[in-house]
Amino acid sequence: MTLRKDHKVAAGKLIRVRIEVEQARALEVRVGGDFFAHPEDAFEEAEASLSGTGLAALPAAAAAAFSRPGLVIFGAGAADIAEALRRAIDENQAP
C-alpha cells in the first residue's frame, strides 16, 4: 500500500510525501518537494533512516531524523515533514 500526501508549508514550500507500507511499517519513505536541503546527501540519509519504522512512530522519527546536526533545510522544517507524514497516515486511518 502507498500513502501519499501533499502539504504546503505556511510561507514555505510544498512537501510531497510517499510512504510504501507493509504490515504497519514504512518500507520506504520519500520526502519530495521544491524545498532546498544542504547538503543534499544528509537529507537523503535522514530519509533512508526511516525505512522499517512503524507507522505510529514515523512522524516523531522523521522530526528527529531531519533535525540532525549539519542538515539545513530551507522552505520547510523537520516539523513540517513530520506533519506531512502524520497527515498521510491519519487520512488513511480515517473512517
Binding site: 510531497r16 520519500r30 520526502v31 519530495g32 518537494g33 543534499e40
Partner: peptide, 9 residues
C-alpha cells in the same frame, strides 16, 4: 525539476 522533486509527479 528540483533535486528533491519527482519528475513523474
Amino acid at each position: 525539476v528540483g533535486y528533491f522533486q519527482s519528475m513523474q509527479e
